[in-house]
Write a protein that binds this DNA or RNA. Structure first.
Lengths: 116, 116
DNA sequence: CTTATCTACAACCAGATGGTTGTAGATAGG
DNA sequence: CCTATCTACAACCATCTGGTTGTAGATAAG
């Protein structure tokens, strides 16, 4: 199993974070980590506090990190977490493709060793 | 752009569907499409109606399809939609990696024509 | 036909979510 | 020092979400 031992809550938070257009847009903007929270905030038709909350959600899901720079807080995207999400999806495909085969193989292995 | 013209609502529904452990488990189980809604329902500590709602959410997000078989409704995973989700994540990575380069390139192309 | 099973859907409820405003602490600049 | 800016966080509110129960339609089985 490629992505093991990620508890449900973590995965929930990861995908839930991605399920909001404002947060996806924040992610697109902050790949290089040059934008402060207030710079991000002016991009959206909502209050600073609302954007701050979105950033907090992303941070909790580890999709971004924040780095203090004077009185600003620079937001940077965390590529590893995006990859984790991608791997979770791939794993699903693998389960779909291999479920039955794998069960048969395991049952076979018990008496025959590897097949083919 | 690999994944174009997917409106926000669609993407929201896609990731939101994935942000629930019951629904992720349903997806894992129904890759081959052999399971009816009621067969799925007995796997979880909740009512039939609750599982039915989860399946409805997955169906609306096009992560599964349903196929009538007599009085049952067989649920089958839709691999293309999983791939769509994966591509959305990859696209994010691409934006992070190439944002600045691409802006420079577009500005350059305006006077130079296509490169390479 | 009658009954049991599978599905669909409405109504309802508690808790989470996404927004608001307001207050307050830190830091930069005049 | 004083002020403006950036951030943090609490309180509040409307809506969405994930669960429940109950009712009803269709199909399979006796």
């Amino acid at each position: 199993m490629v992505v093991d031992r990620l508890i449900d809550e973590t995965v929930d938070g990861l995908f839930r974070s991605l399920a909001d257009p404002t947060r996806r847009d924040i992610l697109r903007r902050c790949g290089r980590g040059q934008l402060s929270v207030s710079q991000l905030a002016v991009c959206y038709p909502m209050s600073f506090a609302a954007v701050q909350k979105h950033v907090a959600v992303l941070e909790k899901a580890e999709l971004v990190t924040k780095e203090r720079k004077g009185r600003e807080q620079l937001v940077r995207g965390k590529v590893e977490t995006i990859r984790t999400a991608g791997r979770l999806l791939e794993e699903l495909e693998v389960v779909w493709r291999g479920r039955i085969d794998r069960i048969e193989q395991i049952l076979g292995d018990e008496k025959r060793g590897s097949r083919k």
